[in-house]
Lab assay of single mutants.
Amino acid sequence: NMECRVCGDKASGFHYGVHACEGCKGFFRRTIRMKLEYEKCERSCKIQKKNRNKCQYCRFQKCLALGMSHNAIRF
């Protein structure tokens, strides 16, 4: 039983190089595919399941810091 490295929810698998839940997987995919840019935040918000949708900037930064990558495809 793995935990999502981004928000701590139950991970659904290994997505983009990191154990992640469906919510964070979809969030990362949409951000990359649609080339979304979020308003910069300096607060280093703590991303948890209950508040993961509050600060998209910090959520995406955490995805990147954990090594999530669009190129991380498993063979």
Rank of each mutant, 00 (worst) to 15 (best):
Asn1Thr: 12
Asn1Gly: 07
Asn1Cys: 05
Met2Gly: 07
Met2Tyr: 09
Met2Glu: 07
Met2Leu: 06
Met2Cys: 10
Met2Phe: 05
Met2Ile: 11
Met2Asp: 11
Glu3Phe: 10
Glu3Leu: 09
Glu3Asn: 10
Cys4Phe: 03
Cys4Arg: 04
Cys4Ser: 03
Cys4Met: 04
Arg5Glu: 14
Arg5Phe: 06
Arg5Gln: 14
Val6Asn: 03
Val6Tyr: 02
Val6Gln: 00
Val6Thr: 00
Cys7Arg: 01
Cys7Leu: 02
Cys7Gln: 03
Cys7Asp: 00
Cys7Tyr: 03
Cys7Thr: 01
Gly8Trp: 01
Gly8Gln: 07
Gly8Val: 00
Gly8Arg: 05
Gly8Leu: 03
Gly8Met: 02
Gly8Ala: 05
Gly8Asp: 05
Asp9Trp: 03
Asp9Glu: 08
Asp9Asn: 09
Lys10Cys: 06
Lys10Phe: 06
Lys10His: 11
Lys10Glu: 12
Lys10Tyr: 06
Lys10Ile: 11
Lys10Pro: 07
Lys10Asn: 10
Ala11Ser: 10
Ala11Gln: 04
Ala11Asp: 07
Ala11His: 07
Ser12Asp: 11
Ser12Glu: 09
Ser12Thr: 11
Ser12Tyr: 09
Ser12Lys: 07
Gly13Ile: 06
Gly13Asn: 12
Gly13Pro: 05
Gly13Asp: 09
Gly13Gln: 06
Phe14Val: 13
Phe14Asn: 10
Phe14Tyr: 13
Phe14Arg: 09
Phe14Leu: 14
Phe14Pro: 09
His15Asp: 11
His15Trp: 13
His15Glu: 11
His15Gln: 08
His15Ala: 09
His15Ile: 08
Tyr16Glu: 12
Tyr16Asn: 11
Tyr16Val: 06
Tyr16Trp: 07
Gly17Asp: 09
Gly17Pro: 04
Gly17Val: 03
Val18Ala: 09
Val18Gly: 04
His19Leu: 13
His19Tyr: 13
His19Thr: 13
His19Pro: 11
His19Trp: 12
Ala20Glu: 01
Ala20Arg: 02
Ala20Ser: 08
Cys21Gly: 03
Cys21Ser: 01
Cys21Ala: 02
Cys21Phe: 00
Cys21Tyr: 03
Glu22Leu: 04
Glu22Gly: 06
Glu22Tyr: 05
Glu22Pro: 06
Glu22Trp: 05
Glu22Asn: 07
Glu22Phe: 06
Gly23His: 15
Gly23Pro: 12
Cys24Ser: 01
Cys24Ile: 04
Cys24Pro: 00
Cys24Gly: 00
Cys24Ala: 03
Cys24Met: 03
Cys24Trp: 02
Lys25Thr: 14
Lys25Trp: 12
Lys25Leu: 14
Gly26Asp: 14
Gly26Trp: 08
Gly26Gln: 12
Gly26Ala: 14
Gly26His: 15
Phe27Met: 00
Phe27Ala: 00
Phe27Asp: 05
Phe27Glu: 01
Phe27Cys: 02
Phe28Ser: 03
Phe28Tyr: 08
Phe28Leu: 01
Phe28Asn: 03
Phe28Met: 08
Arg29Lys: 13
Arg29Cys: 12
Arg29Glu: 15
Arg29Ile: 15
Arg30Phe: 07
Thr31Asp: 03
Thr31Gly: 02
Thr31Asn: 00
Thr31Trp: 03
Thr31Cys: 02
Ile32Pro: 01
Ile32Tyr: 09
Ile32Ala: 07
Ile32Cys: 07
Ile32Gly: 03
Ile32Gln: 05
Ile32Thr: 09
Ile32Phe: 08
Ile32Trp: 06
Arg33Phe: 15
Arg33Gln: 13
Arg33Pro: 00
Arg33Gly: 11
Arg33Lys: 13
Arg33Ile: 14
Met34Asp: 15
Met34Leu: 12
Met34Ser: 10
Met34Thr: 05
Met34Trp: 10
Met34Gln: 15
Met34Ala: 09
Lys35Pro: 04
Lys35Leu: 04
Leu36Cys: 09
Leu36Phe: 08
Leu36Met: 11
Leu36Asp: 04
Glu37Pro: 04
Glu37Cys: 12
Glu37Phe: 07
Glu37Arg: 10
Tyr38Ile: 04
Tyr38Asp: 01
Tyr38Arg: 01
Tyr38Cys: 02
Tyr38Ser: 01
Tyr38Gly: 02
Glu39Asp: 10
Glu39Cys: 03
Glu39Leu: 07
Glu39Gln: 10
Glu39His: 06
Glu39Met: 08
Glu39Arg: 07
Glu39Tyr: 04
Lys40Leu: 10
Lys40Val: 13
Lys40Met: 10
Lys40Asn: 07
Lys40Ile: 13
Cys41Trp: 02
Cys41Glu: 02
Cys41Ile: 00
Cys41Val: 03
Cys41Gln: 04
Cys41Ala: 00
Cys41Arg: 02
Glu42Leu: 08
Glu42His: 08
Glu42Thr: 09
Glu42Phe: 09
Glu42Ser: 09
Glu42Val: 10
Glu42Arg: 05
Glu42Gly: 09
Glu42Asn: 06
Arg43Trp: 07
Arg43Cys: 09
Ser44Gly: 13
Ser44Thr: 11
Ser44Gln: 14
Cys45Trp: 01
Cys45Asn: 01
Cys45Leu: 02
Cys45Ser: 02
Cys45Gln: 01
Cys45Ile: 01
Cys45Arg: 02
Cys45Val: 01
Lys46Asn: 13
Lys46Arg: 11
Lys46Ile: 14
Lys46Met: 13
Ile47Lys: 04
Ile47Glu: 07
Ile47Pro: 08
Ile47His: 03
Lys49Ser: 08
Lys49Glu: 15
Lys49Leu: 13
Lys50Gln: 14
Lys50Arg: 11
Lys50Phe: 14
Lys50Thr: 12
Lys50Met: 13
Asn51Phe: 11
Asn51Met: 11
Asn51Thr: 12
Arg52Thr: 12
Arg52Ser: 12
Arg52Glu: 11
Arg52Tyr: 12
Arg52Met: 10
Arg52Val: 14
Asn53Glu: 14
Asn53Cys: 06
Asn53Leu: 07
Asn53Asp: 10
Asn53Lys: 09
Lys54Phe: 13
Lys54Asn: 13
Lys54Gly: 10
Lys54Cys: 11
Cys55Phe: 01
Cys55Arg: 01
Cys55Gly: 01
Cys55Asn: 00
Cys55Thr: 05
Cys55Lys: 03
Cys55Ile: 03
Gln56Tyr: 09
Tyr57Lys: 04
Tyr57Ala: 05
Tyr57His: 08
Tyr57Trp: 09
Tyr57Glu: 03
Tyr57Asp: 06
Tyr57Met: 01
Tyr57Gly: 02
Cys58Ser: 01
Cys58His: 12
Cys58Trp: 02
Cys58Lys: 01
Cys58Arg: 02
Cys58Glu: 00
Arg59Lys: 08
Arg59Ile: 01
Arg59Gly: 01
Arg59Ala: 04
Arg59Pro: 00
Phe60Ser: 04
Phe60Ile: 05
Phe60Arg: 01
Gln61Trp: 02
Gln61Leu: 05
Gln61Tyr: 07
Lys62Ile: 07
Lys62Ala: 11
Lys62Val: 04
Cys63Ile: 03
Cys63Trp: 01
Leu64Pro: 01
Leu64His: 06
Leu64Trp: 02
Leu64Met: 08
Ala65Ser: 12
Ala65Tyr: 06
Ala65Gln: 12
Leu66Gly: 05
Leu66Arg: 06
Leu66His: 05
Leu66Trp: 03
Leu66Glu: 14
Leu66Gln: 13
Leu66Ser: 13
Leu66Asn: 12
Gly67Ile: 02
Gly67Ala: 05
Gly67Val: 03
Gly67Arg: 03
Gly67Tyr: 01
Met68Glu: 01
Met68Gln: 03
Met68Val: 03
Ser69Cys: 09
Ser69Arg: 08
Ser69Leu: 11
His70Asp: 15
His70Ile: 15
His70Phe: 13
His70Val: 14
His70Gln: 14
His70Thr: 15
His70Ser: 13
His70Trp: 08
Asn71Thr: 10
Asn71Leu: 05
Asn71Pro: 14
Asn71Asp: 14
Asn71Gln: 13
Ala72His: 13
Ala72Met: 13
Ala72Ile: 06
Ala72Gln: 12
Ile73Met: 15
Ile73Cys: 13
Ile73Tyr: 10
Ile73Phe: 10
Ile73Lys: 11
Arg74Gln: 15
Arg74Val: 12
Arg74Phe: 13
Phe75Cys: 15
Phe75Ser: 15
Phe75Glu: 14
Phe75Thr: 15
